[in-house]
Amino acid sequence: MIKKEDVYKIGILGKPHGVRGEIQFRFSDDAFDRCDAEYLVLELEGILVPFFMEEYRFRSDEVALIKFCDIESDEKARELTGTEVYFPRALAEENTETLSWAQIIGFSLVDSGTGKCIGKIASVDETTINLLFEVTTEDGKDLLIPANEDLIKGVDAEKKTIKIEIPEGLLEL
């Protein structure tokens, strides 16, 4: 059985494309292409299920048209519309030296000065000119921490931690 901690979300399936079972896939991480993966993991009714890919082609930098094995009609593809798509962490980590922003969701953010855990990264906000980590603290408080390269002091993918230099006074805001 595939566990949620063994995968990370890379996108969501959209509407069918054509009549032979192809479906739009809006992705935030192209790990499936970089790692030459054979399958993606879909969440169906709370269960993570591997779906093997027959073929895919890029439509843009954020959308691919994908054909899964055994999905032969637009009706079958339509049943998958809105389904969240995940990628195996182990496969991504063995085939790449750098982590994508999607892979670090769930990592602990640690203050490099004090060694204290600030919280877990809930998401990465790329909508502004400055990249931000959206962090949830242990007491449930939400924080925005700049994800500037100069502030990041170390990443440990095995321990799922990122050490960051916190600008003075930032945590008091």
Rank of each mutant, 00 (worst) to 15 (best):
N95R: 13
I118F: 13
D29G: 03
L80W: 01
A77F: 00
E165M: 09
G18T: 05
T81L: 03
L40Q: 01
E134S: 10
E75N: 11
A77S: 06
E5M: 08
D61R: 13
G106F: 04
K15N: 11
L132K: 12
S108M: 13
L151H: 05
T137A: 14
L151G: 04
V49W: 07
V124K: 00
E79C: 10
P146C: 00
I71N: 06
E43D: 05
Y86I: 03
D61S: 14
R26L: 15
D61Q: 15
T161H: 11
G46A: 00
L151Q: 06
F133M: 07
K141L: 10
V19Q: 08
E72S: 14
D139L: 09
I71T: 08
E54V: 14
C35F: 03
F133E: 03
K160R: 14
L65T: 13
E165D: 14
I105L: 08
L132P: 01
T114N: 08
I105K: 15
E138N: 07
G21W: 02
E38D: 10
I152L: 07
T81P: 05
V7T: 08
F68Y: 03
K67G: 00
D142N: 13
A31I: 02
I23H: 01
E172S: 12
K159W: 04
E45V: 12
I129H: 10
Y39L: 03
C69H: 15
V124L: 00
F68C: 03
T96S: 10
F32P: 00
D70C: 11
R89E: 03
Q103P: 02
T96K: 14
A157H: 07
K159Y: 06
L132H: 08
K120P: 04
L143I: 00
A122F: 12
I121D: 02
L40S: 00
D111M: 05
K3G: 11
D33I: 09
K3M: 08
Y39W: 05
V155N: 10
R20L: 09
N95I: 00
S100L: 06
R59I: 14
L131I: 04
R59K: 14
I105C: 08
K15R: 11
D6F: 09
E22I: 13
E72R: 11
K159A: 11
R26G: 05
V124G: 01
P50D: 02
I104V: 15
L131N: 05
F87L: 01
L171Q: 04
G115N: 08
I145S: 05
C69W: 12
F27H: 09
E94Y: 12
E134M: 09
D6Y: 05
L13S: 04
A37H: 02
D142K: 14
E172V: 00
R34M: 04
E93Q: 12
E126D: 15
F87K: 02
F32L: 04
K163F: 11
I162Y: 07
F133H: 06
I145T: 03
F87D: 01
K159T: 05
E84I: 06
I71F: 00
V155P: 10
K116T: 15
T114W: 06
K116G: 12
E165L: 10
V41N: 01
T128E: 13
K76G: 08
N130P: 06
S28L: 14
G119K: 04
K67P: 07
R34K: 12
D74Y: 15
D111E: 07
G82N: 00
T98H: 10
E72T: 15
T127H: 09
G119A: 09
E62D: 09
